[in-house]
């Protein structure tokens, strides 16, 4: 086996451009590049954290990875095998998704049992007895009581509903689970219950996670490596333990300094009038140059490529920060 086939997930040049309807006279416009070509690999059993602010393309990327959105270009390989968008069930057996809003991801008019049975029946073709046994097994592993099975989603709290969402993802028996802001709709005291459950499940079932969040502290606590997205592109990727304490990209540093921390004085870490770049009129060169104090002429002309900086670190910056 080569190193290539060892990875759990390999993404090569994956991109998404949303078409923009032209004006009345139909002058063709280039479209919004929600995700610019992105490449990365995830090892089996690893948790890759993905952080970025709203509009950075993290949800678009996640939806492409599970086949809910056809990519404009690039390829997705799971355990060495390429996936194509033609067969949603093929995606469902290999990679699953846990949604941000636990309540709205459960059909309000179905019982939890009906929700849990769908993937077992449709993806794995199990009969009734096998399904009941498997549901009991999964419910035990996510600490839910079986009497919940005949209730409807609105009867559950956010934390319980999120555990049901996780149970549904597990039912498909995938190797990879994409967690899209799985705890941001939950209260802090419940957040940790769900995060610790996820850590236990990963150990027990040998899962690989992609953990998307805007909360840097949560991402750092659960991830092995972290990938920082800005304006649809990877600006930095590296080990979770180091990336926020010694960032290479100025944007990573801005994120880390903006997170409110007990015991640090309040100060706006950047100019007050800065705004995100306009996706309809993307800047030339580095998308962050307009907000960056280190930006020079070269930043405004050419987009920096993602380059290796240190053992495990990659960053896309012409003027990376020193340690």
């Amino acid at each position: 086996m080569t190193a290539q086939t060892m990875t759990a997930l390999t993404v090569t040049g994956l991109s998404k451009t949303f078409p923009v309807s032209g004006g009345l006279l139909g002058r063709a416009r280039p479209g919004v590049r929600a995700v610019r070509p992105v490449s990365f690999a995830v090892e089996p059993g690893e948790t890759l954290g993905i952080v970025g602010e709203s509009g950075c393309g993290k949800s678009t990327l996640a939806r492409m990875l599970v086949g809910l959105l056809p990519p404009s270009g690039g390829s997705i390989e799971i355990a060495g095998k390429a996936l194509d968008t033609a067969d949603p069930a093929a995606f469902g057996r290999r990679i699953q998704y846990v949604f941000q809003d636990p309540i709205s991801s459960l059909n309000p008019r179905k019982t939890i049992r009906q929700i849990m049975e769908a993937p077992l029946k449709l993806l794995h073709g199990m009969d009734r007895a096998a399904r009941a046994a498997r549901i009991a097994e999964i419910f035990a592993s996510v600490n839910l009581r079986e009497e919940f099975l005949d209730r409807y989603p609105h009867e559950f709290s956010g934390g319980q509903a999120q555990r049901i969402g996780i149970a549904r993802a597990l039912a498909a028996a995938p190797g990879i689970i994409i967690l899209d802001e799985p705890v941001s709709a939950l209260d802090v005291s419940v957040q940790a219950q769900v995060l610790n459950l996820l850590a236990g499940l990963k150990r027990d079932f040998g899962l690989t996670y992609l953990f998307i969040s805007h909360d840097l502290a949560v991402v750092e606590a659960v991830s092995d490596r972290v990938m920082v997205l800005y304006f649809g592109a990877v600006v930095e990727i590296g080990r979770a333990a180091e990336i926020f304490t010694s960032p290479k990209h100025p944007y990573t540093r801005l994120l880390a300094e903006s997170a409110p921390v007990v015991g640090r004085a309040l100060a706006a870490p950047e100019q007050k009038d800065s705004e995100l770049p306009d996706p309809l009129d993307p800047p030339r060169g580095c998308a962050f140059a307009g907000r960056c104090i280190r930006a020079s002429a070269v930043c405004r002309e050419t987009d920096p490529p993602l380059e290796k900086m240190g053992d495990t670190r990659f960053a896309a910056c012409h003027h990376p920060l020193e340690d």
């Binding site: 957040q191 995060l195 502290a217 750092e220 606590a221 333990a241």
Partner: peptide, 19 residues
């Protein structure tokens, strides 16, 4: 329960039960 940046990968504290 509130995770703070700079703590590295770890088990987080939780409060059992619900309000």
């Amino acid at each position: 329960c509130v995770p703070e940046l700079g703590g590295g990968k770890r088990e987080l504290a939780a409060i059992p039960g619900l309000p």
